[in-house]
Every structure is written in C-alpha cells, then in structure tokens.
C-alpha cells in the first residue's frame, strides 16, 4: 500500500517561496508512526529536513503539523491522522521557518524565560533539602510533565497574533507550576508580572492547546488558576 505524503519544503537561502513536495511511501501495510514515514522519505530524498531525537515522545523535538493538527511525529500513528490515504506534513504554524519542517523557536523560548521557570526561595536553605508534603507535591502533577514541544502554543491563535506579548499556553503552564509550588516564595512577584492585558489575559479559552498536547496536559485549566490567583490577590 503506497501512502501519499505531501511535505512542506522551504529553504529561505535558495527558494523564493515555500512549496509542497509529494512523495509515495511504502508503509508495508503497517501502522507506522509519522516519524517512521519521515525516515522513509529521507531515504528517498536526503535533503528533507526535520528535527527529532528520542523517537519516543520525551524530548519534544519533533512537534509538527500533521493533516492540520499539531503533535509529535514519533508517537502519532498513521491510523490516527491519515485520511483518504493522504498525509500532509507542515512545520508548526506561527513560527518562522528555518528550513523545511524546522522552525525557529526563539519566540517560544523567550516567553518561557519570562516566567522565570525555576524555584525561587529566599529563606536560608535547610541542611538537606526543602521538604514538601505529599499533598503539596500532588499539586504539581499535570504541570511538571511538559516537554516544551510547542505543539500547544503554536496552535493557539492568540499566540500567533502576539507571540511577543502573550506568554502562550506552554509558558503559562510553567508559570502556574511555580505559582503552585509550596517551596517557592516569589508568588507575589510572579503574579505582579502577569497582570497586564497580554501576558495571561490574551487567552480566550479556545482550548486548542488542550486539544493538541501530546502529554495530555491542560494549559487552559492552569491559566484559569492563574486568573483566580490574580483575582484573589487584587480583591
């Protein structure tokens, strides 16, 4: 069975504009992962460029847009995405393309950096470690698992229009991860930095982020928690 695959090709150094290139791939009748198909395509045309590393959904390198939906190529089986024997693969939307399926993630990382994604605690460090009750530790579940693949932020219209001012679902999920941490003492300072009309409040609850997260995380819920914290702090 030959699968029809259409791949976004663009080399800003030599091409005046992007184009789609069609390939026929022999899947051997197996339900391969999209990343396997890309490897097969690379054996046909070595100039096709994409990122990947772990090939098992932990590194977050191969976030791609497959038949219109963002996801990790390595853990997306063909049966989940292919319709009418056709697979269209594009880079993650909204970020500048470096080459073919590889995007420049600088804007995405800049937003991540803004939320200061590290524990801040100005009390003297204890001899061994800062302890946390099992209940407090539980509050971090569904937050710490994020692999920063950017599938969520690049599917969010608010992030497309304001990637320089709206932190986006991935960054906000991490913002809440540190707001919710019982060991972090910078809660107020963190909240103060989020109270402008863009950083958090550009989220209109469209939930595209929830829909695509390959780790099954829920940024919209975390954003709701941040909003409630801001509200409690201000009223």
């Amino acid at each position: 069975m030959m699968l029809n695959v259409s791949i976004y090709r663009y080399n800003p150094e030599t091409d005046s504009e992007p184009r789609m290139q069609d390939f026929q791939v022999d899947t051997g009748g197996k339900d391969l992962m999209v990343l396997d198909v890309l490897e097969l395509i690379k054996s046909q045309d070595t100039t096709v460029v994409y990122r990947r590393s772990c090939r098992e959904g932990v590194c977050g390198s191969d976030g791609l847009n497959m038949n219109g939906k963002n996801g990790l190529a390595c853990i997306t089986p063909l049966s989940e995405t292919v319709k009418n024997n056709k697979l269209v693969i594009r880079p993650l939307p909204g970020l500048p393309v470096i080459r073919d399926l590889v995007v420049d993630m600088s804007l995405f990382y800049a937003q991540y950096e803004k939320v200061e994604p590290y524990l801040q605690n100005d009390t003297p460090a204890p001899a061994i470690e800062r302890l946390q009750s099992p209940e407090d530790r539980e509050k971090l579940d569904g937050l710490y698992e994020c692999i920063l693949c950017a599938c969520c932020s690049t599917s969010c219209p608010s992030f497309w229009w304001n990637p320089d001012r709206f932190i986006g679902p991935a960054g906000l999920l991490q913002a809440y991860r540190f707001l919710a941490d019982s060991r972090d003492t910078a809660t107020n300072e963190r909240l103060a930095k989020l109270d402008d009309p863009f950083s958090v409040f550009r989220c209109h609850g469209i939930q595209n982020c929830v829909n695509v997260c390959p780790k099954g995380l829920n940024p919209t819920r975390a954003i709701g928690h941040i909003r409630n914290m801001l509200l409690t702090r201000a009223t």
Binding site: D196, P197, F198, L230, L231, A234
Partner: peptide, 8 residues
C-alpha cells in the same frame, strides 16, 4: 491598563 481589571 491591567489585564485583570479589563477581564473583570
């Protein structure tokens, strides 16, 4: 001028 007050 504040996201929260606009939102509220």
């Amino acid at each position: 001028r504040s996201g929260l007050s606009d939102w509220l």
